[in-house]
Design a protein around this nucleic acid. Sequence first.
RNA 1: GCCCCCAUCGUCUAGAGGCCUAGGACACGGCCCUUUCAAGGCUGAGAUCAGCGGUUCGAAUCCGCUUGGGGGUACCA
Length: 501
Amino acid sequence: MTNVRVRIAPSPTGPLHLGTARTALFNFLFARHLGGTFIFRLEDTDQARSTEAFEVDIIEGMHWLGIRWDEGPAVAGEPEIGNYGPYRQMQRMASYTEAANRLLAEDKAYYCYCSPDELDVERKRQEASHLPARYNGRCAHLSAEERAAFEREGRRPVVRFRIPEERKIAFDDIVRGHVEIDTNALGGDLVILRSDGTPLYHFTVAVDDAAMEITHVIRGEDHLSNTPKHILLFEALGASIPQFAHLPLILNPDRTKMSKRKTQTSVDAYRMDGFIPEAFVNYLALLGWSTGTEEEVLSLDDLIERFDLAKVNSSGAVFDRERLEWLNGQWIRRLPAPDLIARLRPFLETELAAGRIEWMPSDQEMSALLPVVQERLPTLAAVGELIGFLFQEDVTPDLALLVPKRWDMAATAANLREARGIMAAGRDTWRAHEIEAPLRILVEDRGWKAGDLFMAIRVAVTGRTATPPLFDTLVALGYERTLARVDRAIARLEAGTPPSL
RNA sequence: GCCCCCAUCGUCUAGAGGCCUAGGACACGGCCCUUUCAAGGCUGAGAUCAGCGGUUCGAAUCCGCUUGGGGGUACCA
């Protein structure tokens, strides 16, 4: 165990987000690689938008991905683990007011009575004269009388943290290298407590990171510009300054910051789409990082072993669902049969509930099918599309699909009838190559194309043109149902065929 | 507006001055396999390394500028 301590601090104001999941993963990989401590902290101070349902979604989503923490809430309502708790900010309120009072006492912060409206007017004025938006410091040096006057007006002050002027804050970001930002660009003295006494994000993050002795702050690039504020706060609080690593952002296809509008961002939505966590985590890890080798299909353990913050990219990465799907297929193919069947269950339930299948296949049926199904599943959710026709009473194929280009309806009906006769003799030998062999002889005798007959049978029996291998499919369907479906197709073809002259 | 960050195939990336007439993967095309669909194998196309200057014997790699993109700039997180 090293003394490395990192954290992920999501706010439960929405379902687990792709970006949060990736940041969590990078923190987790970093901690595990180094034998450090990974901490989960809930930033639930936005009471208006935070809900317990989102909290549960986030925690369960993380667990689904295989991301576990050493300190933090277990699941909603249950006890926490770790000696630096509580791990919910709402339960740490006292520490923020205590810290703010300390800064006030040391004159590192002061009460500001400017109203939001006044601030707004000032901001607009600065904007109009092309000046950087910045608090003008009107309340920075109020006398006791002035303060009393404001109080008498009924104004409730915020607490502002003094940002020094003309100072360069420099830090060495692990992924970006040396970064320098002038304190004049920080927007002036920073509000750390609202007029109702509740703390603001930049303040809570610094107070908590200090209290939890975070050594490395690994987060999205959107916080890069805010880092000097945090550094100043750490200094004022007398805390040591952690190392920073700012991860490249995940982007929409148009290269803007990923948004719900343009990219599916909910991790749970990907789960419901049939992605498996092995693939998801693998994909996320490779968004902005690579091993430097040509390895791409990597398990969580592989990732932990190879992870290196210094090899993280600095430019944004477009989320590419097709590549995720490819990785998902890779991982599905690697799953042991019983495992895959178990994971397919919930998706079969969904098919059943939606009426797309009429009964549930047994584990035996599924494992018989698996060899021909496993390599054809891009996602777990594709299972219904692939083999649903097996678990329906009947199918009604499109007549147009039933008739091969070289045949017409009458020929198709007649040829299917011949094939049906041959298959009918196979009741006791209903196995793939024993169905196939005599049909091939028939094809040979008649001078047909094997593909034409097989496609006609395929469509007659499954209703689709793309299926698992035909004869395996027939075996799975069974003798009776195969013949019944062929018969029905023949009947429909004959009914649709105009009588010949 | 101001500040910061970024810039290699459509996309994810390899590349830490000579190994690069730039490698891999996804997607796309072709061929093989084949009853369809996949999977797999082989193969093709695809990047004047954003542009311009500089440093150097030598630059995708270092520096500067330009352009483009992104982020930040709240009594949001």
